[in-house]
Design a protein around this nucleic acid. Structure first.
Lengths: 148, 148
DNA sequence: AATAGTTGATACTTATAGATATTAAAAAAG
DNA sequence: CTTTTTTAATATCTATAAGTATCAACTATT
C-alpha cells in the first residue's frame, strides 16, 4: 500500500478527513462555510482533503481550542494579510475590497472582474502560507522591515 | 458645571467610568489586566478614565459583543500592529519581542532596556490610534502600498 | 445495489468566555 | 469620618460559540 502521496494531493473524502481529525463532518463543512478552509472539489462537488489540508485544519483547531481565538477573530486576523503584496496585485485604485475588508479573508470575497478572477485561491500563496498568526506577523514584519 | 474637559483628560474614577459604560468595575479591571486598556493612574494607584478612554472601551465592547471576536482574538490582532513603524523604533536586531510576539499588544510587553523603556504607552500613538481592526488594516495597507 | 457525499434547514448539547458578585484588609479621596 | 479605591482570591452566573445530530431529497462512488 502506497501511503506516500504528495502532501498537497487531495485524497481523503470528507468522512476520512473527519476521522483523521477526530471531528464531525459537519464541523469540516462549517469551517469551509466560514472561509477558513478551501477543500478541493471534484467536478461532482465532492470534497477531497490533502495532508496539507489536514495540517491546516489542525492548526485552526489549536487556534480555537488552545489560543482561545474565536472563529470571527481568526477570520479578521486572516483578513489582515496584505495579499496584494504576496500576489503582486496592484488593483488598489479599482477598489478591490480585500484592501479594506477586515471581517473575512480575501479568498472568501467575491473575485469578479479583478486580479483574482481566474486565480485559484486554493493554490494561492496567500491561502497556503498564512494559516496562523505566526506567519502573518512575520509577513507584516518583513514587509515593513526596511521602510523609511 | 463645566463638562468641557479635554477628551484626553483623565477625570472619571472607576465607579463613574463603569456607570458611564454600564458595565461592572470588575470588567474594567479585567480589560486592563488583559492589556486592552491603559487607564491613567494617580501616584496613589487609583485609576482615572478620560472621555477617550471611555470611547476606546466602547469600541472594544462592540468588537466583543457585535463582531464576536474573543478577547484573545483582540489581543492577537493588536499584536499585529507594526509598532516599530509608528514609533520610529529600529531595535529589531536587539530582539525586541514586539517584532515577534503575537499573543498580546506591544504595550503589554516588558519594556526593559529598549526603545520604549522611558516612553509612556498610554501616550503612544500605537496605543492611541489603533484600538480597532479598521485602523489596523489601514495602517498595514498604507505601509505596504508603494512597496516594490 | 449498497455506500457515501451533496445542500439546506432545524434542533440540540456542551464547554466556556465574558461578566458579575463577594470576600477582606489597607489606603486614599472628598 | 464616610465613601471609594486598591489588590487578590474565590465563587458564581449566563449568554453563546463551537460542535453534534437528524432530517430530507438528490447525486456520486465503487
Amino acid at each position: 500500500m502506497d501511503i506516500n502521496f504528495p502532501n498537497n494531493e487531495p485524497i481523503f473524502p470528507i468522512r476520512t478527513a473527519a476521522k483523521l481529525l477526530n471531528i464531525s463532518i459537519h464541523t469540516l463543512r462549517m469551517y469551509e462555510k466560514e472561509g477558513l478552509i478551501i477543500p478541493y472539489k471534484r467536478s461532482s462537488k465532492q470534497r477531497l482533503y490533502s495532508k496539507d489540508d489536514i495540517e491546516r485544519i489542525e492548526c485552526i483547531r489549536r487556534t480555537i481550542n488552545e489560543d482561545k481565538i474565536s472563529i470571527n477573530g481568526i477570520k479578521t486576523i486572516l483578513s489582515l494579510i496584505p495579499c496584494w503584496q504576496i500576489t503582486g496585485c496592484n488593483e488598489r485604485k479599482n477598489g478591490c475590497s480585500a484592501f479594506y475588508e477586515h471581517s473575512k479573508p480575501c479568498w472568501a470575497l467575491k473575485h469578479e472582474n479583478n486580479y483574482c478572477t481566474n486565480r485559484d485561491c486554493r493554490e494561492c500563496l496567500v491561502y497556503k502560507n498564512y494559516a496562523n498568526c505566526s506567519t502573518i506577523k512575520a509577513e507584516i514584519r518583513d514587509l515593513t522591515h526596511n521602510l523609511p
